[in-house]
């Protein structure tokens, strides 16, 4: 039965011609199938693995809005991701709020952080911007390490609520559904930016900032919008993290594996369209899940590094570029 529905999945190849309604129907169908399939399996591990993959879909899509569309390489993805995770910890502890409001607040924190980064680094181009974001990551980590309210360097424990909302069979299932919705929303945002005036302006300033200004593009404002949206979405990707593992500490939350994955996934998939980060995230994070289970967690990072290097050398336009002729 499911075989008949599978063609409705949003195939990455020619989605530009799909209307908005068609796109949303396809996305909803894909999401529903995924949830039903996971429920059919009924294993907590399946939920965990799916949540892990989807979380990277959000992170990679968010990174690509600034990195792929505007051409600003953010090495500090882990900082935004961890900011989201620690927002959940701090807000949850202070006000006893559940996951959903925490995600909303994480979006605001990440957006503000993105805006701040943008204002601080707006005059920097290329490598300087990348290095500044890397520094930002270290500064933020230092503050978290020294902030004992959220556990400092020892980390913090988060207890999953006992009662599972909305009739889900387990909290893991609920978490997975939430992250799935976030992933679909992230892709929808990326896709609408791509076809909008904002996307056109970002593409122009990516290629030549002075020429874009001369053509009437308010480059500064567009960059700030891009850093804010990208930052907000990266924080949203991190917000469910404490519930996923029940324990969070700075070294892993700020781990460079988030930073490298956020860059590697869009570059491997292709940075020109929303489908690139999606493909890259699904491939690379599934590969890592498999490697973690079968080999070791160090080996899976090695795989990411090797795949990234091979791809940027051999296929600079990513997997999408391999299949799609240049426009």
């Amino acid at each position: 039965m499911s075989d008949a529905i599978i063609p409705a999945l949003p195939r990455p190849a020619p989605p530009r011609r799909l209307g908005h309604a068609g796109f949303w129907l396809a996305a909803a169908a894909a999401a529903a199938i995924l949830i039903l399939a996971l429920r059919g399996m009924g294993s907590e591990y399946a939920y965990f693995a799916a949540t892990f993959v989807l979380q990277y879909v959000v992170l990679a899509t968010a990174w690509n809005i600034l990195g792929g569309y505007a051409g600003y390489v953010n090495f500090g993805a882990a900082a935004f991701f961890a900011a989201g995770a620690y927002t959940t910890v701090a807000v949850g502890k202070a006000f006893g709020l559940g996951l959903l409001p925490c995600i909303g607040i994480a979006a605001m924190v990440g957006g503000a952080l993105g805006l701040g980064t943008g204002i601080l680094t707006l005059r920097l181009r290329g490598a300087y911007f990348a290095i500044a974001t890397l520094c930002l990551s270290v500064v933020l980590q230092t503050f978290i390490v020294n902030w004992s309210y959220v556990g400092g360097s020892r980390g913090a424990y988060i207890l999953r609520p006992r009662d599972v909302p909305f009739g889900f069979d387990s909290y893991g299932g609920y978490l997975c559904a939430v992250v799935l919705v976030l992933a679909a929303a992230a892709i929808a945002i990326a896709r609408s930016i791509e076809v909008s005036r904002l996307g056109l302006g970002l593409a122009a300033l990516r290629d030549d900032e002075a020429a874009a200004e001369a053509a009437g593009v308010p480059t500064l404002r567009l960059k700030l919008i891009a850093t804010s949206i990208s930052g907000a979405m990266m924080a949203v990707a991190g917000a469910p993290l404490p519930y996923l593992g029940s324990y969070i500490e700075p070294t892993s939350a700020f781990g460079l594996s988030y930073a490298v994955n956020a860059i590697a996934m869009p570059l491997i998939g292709g940075t020109a369209s929303w489908a690139g980060p999606l493909i890259g995230a699904v491939l690379l994070s599934s590969l890592q899940q498999a490697a973690t289970v079968t080999i070791s967690s160090a080996a899976n990072l090695l795989i990411v590094g090797v795949v990234l290097v091979v791809f940027v050398c051999v296929a600079p336009r990513g997997i999408i570029g391999l299949f799609r002729r240049r426009r």
């Binding site: 302006g201 290629d207 020429a211 593009v217 308010p218």
Partner: peptide
């Protein structure tokens, strides 16, 4: 200084849009 990642038509759409 064309926008190298955009087509010729898209190059012109930038000033038209902005």
């Amino acid at each position: 200084r064309p926008f190298r990642g955009l087509t010729v038509a898209e190059n012109v759409r930038v000033p038209l849009s902005f």
